[in-house]
């Protein structure tokens, strides 16, 4: 008989509980996350859209970090191409 491997049993129980906890709410949490990300994107690009941003000095630093998500963002908002002349995307 194979001896019981407690470590692997512990890992299995953790995995099953985690899946059981997370699986039903993946979509809901992803949607909330996306809303938060959209808001951040809006704040970072507010100057570009003509809305004065008192903390643009700081948000400007975030631009390179958000560049990868920018394409997905403008497409989701119904704009096939980048809405900003000076910020090219696709």
């Amino acid at each position: 008989m194979t001896p019981l491997n407690w470590r692997s049993l512990y890992v299995q129980v953790r995995y099953w509980l985690q899946e059981f906890y997370v699986a039903p709410y993946r979509r809901e949490l992803a949607r909330v996350q996306r809303d938060h990300d959209d808001l951040l994107m809006l704040l970072v690009f507010s100057e570009a859209m003509g809305v004065p941003n008192p903390v643009s000095f700081y948000t400007l630093e975030l631009l390179p970090l958000l560049y990868e998500d920018f394409h997905q963002w403008h497409e989701r908002l119904g704009m096939r191409q980048s809405p900003f002349d000076h910020f090219r995307c696709c």
Binding site: W16, E19, F20, A23, P24, R26, R27, A30
Partner: peptide
């Protein structure tokens, strides 16, 4: 996509289908 469409172990899926 890791969000809505995720292949799931049938026992886990049965578990939360049943409890839902």
């Amino acid at each position: 996509d890791g969000i809505d469409y995720v292949p799931t172990n049938p026992f886990i899926l049965w578990g939360h289908h049943f409890t839902s």
